[in-house]
Amino acid sequence: MQKLFFEIQIDAPPEKVWDVLWSDITYRQWTTAFTEGSFYLGSFEEGSIIKFFDPNNNGMYSRIEKNIPHKEMKFLHLGEIYDGVEQEQAWGEATEAYILQETETGTILKIEINTPEEFQSFFEEKFPTALGIVKNLSENQL
């Protein structure tokens, strides 16, 4: 497993950043950095399963390990989805956490990822772009 860390300062309150991250419309916008047409199905309720898809009905499914509104969202990735069919993966503790820290001028958004090595370069390439989109949406949307 590889531990990856990303961070960005956003001049908007944590509530706004949170809404940009997890509201359906803005989620679809910032995740274009990973795959155009990305979306999710399910609930962000702690303990529930959420599914992340691309437009071809492929993606992954995860359990919500932690949901502290406006502060932290953590996923445990369980498996992949191909043509709508779930396939469990032996990823162990493959996690992805979004941590929002309020500052005097806004929010520091921190991403902590525990990932199998084969996904490391993908995340290192795509996450900075995704965070730039989150920043832009958070600072410029009404």
Rank of each mutant, 00 (worst) to 15 (best):
I133V: 14
G84S: 05
A12H: 04
G59K: 05
A94I: 02
S62K: 11
H70R: 09
N57K: 10
F34T: 05
T31S: 03
M60G: 12
Q89E: 10
R63F: 13
P55R: 11
N140C: 03
K66L: 13
E15V: 02
Y61D: 03
E86S: 00
R28E: 15
F34R: 00
A94Y: 09
F119T: 03
I108A: 03
N57Q: 13
P14G: 07
I68C: 06
L41S: 11
E88N: 12
N136Q: 11
E45Y: 08
Y27R: 04
N58D: 15
E96M: 09
I81F: 00
E86T: 00
E93R: 06
E96F: 11
Q141W: 01
T95W: 09
I10L: 06
G47P: 07
T95A: 01
I108L: 01
I25V: 11
E93N: 07
N140H: 13
N58L: 08
G37C: 08
H77V: 15
I113K: 14
T105E: 13
K126Q: 11
E80I: 12
F5Y: 14
S38T: 15
F119Q: 06
G92M: 08
N56V: 15
T31I: 01
H77G: 04
W91C: 01
R63Q: 14
L109V: 11
L76D: 07
M73H: 10
D11F: 07
E104K: 15
P14V: 04
A94V: 01
E104C: 09
F5G: 11
F39T: 06
E102Y: 00
S23T: 01
L4N: 03
H70I: 01
L100I: 01
N58S: 12
D11N: 13
W91V: 02
F123S: 10
W22L: 08
I25G: 02
D19Q: 11
E45W: 03
L41D: 14
V85S: 01
F5Q: 12
E112W: 02
Y40Q: 06
E124T: 08
Y27K: 07
I99K: 10
D24G: 09
K71W: 01
A33N: 08
E118C: 04
L100E: 00
Q141F: 08
E72T: 15
S138E: 12
G47I: 13
Q29M: 10
F52M: 12
K51A: 07
E125G: 06
G92V: 01
S48D: 12
G132K: 09
W91Q: 00
A130P: 08
A97H: 05
L21M: 08
F39M: 05
G79T: 00
F122A: 12
I108Q: 05
F34E: 01
G59M: 01
H77E: 13
E104M: 15
G47W: 11
E88Q: 10
L131Y: 12
F5M: 04
N58K: 15
D24E: 12
Q9I: 09
A130F: 05
L78G: 00
D54M: 06
Y40D: 05
I111C: 02
E88A: 11
Q9T: 14
S121D: 14
I81G: 00
Y40A: 12
G42H: 10
F39E: 09
F52L: 04
E65W: 04
I10H: 06
E88L: 06
S23F: 05
M60H: 05
E117H: 05
E88C: 03
F44D: 03
N136K: 12
F123R: 06
K66F: 05
I25P: 00
K71L: 02
